[in-house]
Design a protein around this nucleic acid. Sequence first.
DNA 1: CTACAATCTGACGTTGACGTAAGGATTCAA
DNA 2: TTGAATCCTTACGTCAACGTCAGATTGTAG
Lengths: 146, 146
Amino acid sequence: MSTTAASLRIGDVARLVGTTPRTIRYYEEKGLLPAGAGRAAGQHRLYGEGDVERLRELLRMRNLLGVPLEELRELVAVDDERAMLRSELHRTDAPAERERILHRLDALAERQLAAVDRRAGELDALRDEIAARRARIAELLAEPER
Amino acid sequence: MSTTAASLRIGDVARLVGTTPRTIRYYEEKGLLPAGAGRAAGQHRLYGEGDVERLRELLRMRNLLGVPLEELRELVAVDDERAMLRSELHRTDAPAERERILHRLDALAERQLAAVDRRAGELDALRDEIAARRARIAELLAEPER
DNA sequence: CTACAATCTGACGTTGACGTAAGGATTCAA
DNA sequence: TTGAATCCTTACGTCAACGTCAGATTGTAG
């Protein structure tokens, strides 16, 4: 049922996303990555393209938002619910049901957007302040007189 | 020579900026805040409005950029040089000197801008992605057919 | 002057996010 | 089947960024 075969090992994945095996195991331990359900203790972990994407998103958000992993987990929990709802959406044709799901999806996206948007706005403000300073300096350089 | 009298104590400052005395001492220890030059060991620290502003900027950048304090120190070192150059700028009328200083100021601002700008751009991209998802959901909600 | 809150300087404790090392098991190519 | 490379689990180590505690000291309202 997976889109891509799970044929990558932890070291490969680590190289692909630019991190270390230890970090991947740690994220699994903390519930940020699925625990690879059908895998007996001692066996090697196997990953697919989807897992790689997931991990990329995690690292990206960690870098951009700088939030603790705990908080990060909640954000991706939103993603998980999104995936669930989307597959649910594909299995139904009932219009009322579809609308209900879509509204829920929208609410989730809105929540995530709010978290990111606020940060982005603040950063933009900071950037603008610095840019304004540069502009003033450029002005002073342009007119050598008082 | 200070714009405002240094009459605030560490607890007051902490409340003003929303942090703790311990953090303020820690930042001083790490060279992010001046060590209050004329103060014998054991005496209470005293702060002015300028110090409060400085600390606010520090916390703001820490939150927005999520960089380690070490890196943060370099960023504010830029601010310090900026302050120095500005006062230098006020003390001279020699056009060549003024131009030299202004160019240096511009270089500093550019460096700071680069650091912030990249982050801001990435965050904007993330925000746009989420916003696009919302837009698609809205579309689906609008047209009940298909 | 006194009482009391706030601050001081060490120094040790804590938490998150991994790094590192040990001893053994798994994979896979040859 | 036999290595060599990689991986497994367990457990201790580390580093930044503070928290917390103790005992002494300082600032200030009454």
